[in-house]
């Protein structure tokens, strides 16, 4: 994925990001004390980021021009390459969004089972294998953290109702 096109897009993104953050830095309160203000250090960091991103943009643009690109689809991204990563992102968002309802135990089992099945395959043998792995692994972790380390993991509304 690392090529001039992606670097060009990233450099522009970083410049926009720095701009937004520099703008937000003006909202940082000044308490009027002597010494360094609360917004000074972040501003230094962000302006350095602007400089570095500009260098990256300039460098990439020059390379991009000399490479003589005929491909006009700058924004074409091969999503199939990221299929598994996107599955992980999706499952993790689902797991986090439902954590309050399902809790860490049920949610964790569902998350591991879902991820294993989506990444590993759907045959009946595999589904049983994945189910047992998810129940055993999350069950073990839940026991270790709840009883061994005394961490109050989210129990979720479903288990609370029971």
């Amino acid at each position: 994925m690392t090529n001039n096109k992606s670097d060009l897009i990233i450099a522009i993104f970083l410049l926009c990001f720095s701009g937004i953050m520099i703008n937000d830095a003006s909202n940082i309160r000044d308490l009027g004390f002597e010494g360094m203000k609360a917004d000074a250090w972040p501003r230094v960091v962000l302006w350095m980021l602007v400089v570095m991103s500009s260098i990256m943009l300039g460098k990439t643009y020059l390379q991009f021009k000399t490479d003589n690109h005929k491909d006009n689809n700058i924004f074409k991204i091969n999503f199939s390459k990221f299929k598994n990563a996107l599955i992980c992102f999706g499952m993790f968002i689902f797991f986090l969004s439902t954590l309050d309802y399902l809790g860490m135990l049920l949610g964790g089992i569902l998350f591991v089972f879902g991820l294993l099945t989506l990444l590993g395959g759907f045959t009946i043998r595999l589904v049983f294998k994945h189910l047992s792995i998810s129940i055993l692994s999350i069950g073990f972790m839940w026991v270790v953290f709840t009883f061994g380390l005394r961490v109050m993991l989210p129990e979720g509304e479903i288990l609370r109702v029971w």
């Binding site: 992980c88 993790f92 986090l96 860490m104 964790g108 991820l115 294993l116 692994s137 961490v151």
Partner: peptide, 29 residues
Amino acid sequence: YVLASVILAYCAIGVFALHNITFDIWVMF
């Protein structure tokens, strides 16, 4: 894929154990 799935869940539990807040898991994500 088996190791990765189990460890991803472990990461979430481990991070939650730090401050007992779900926000930390979002930060990790």
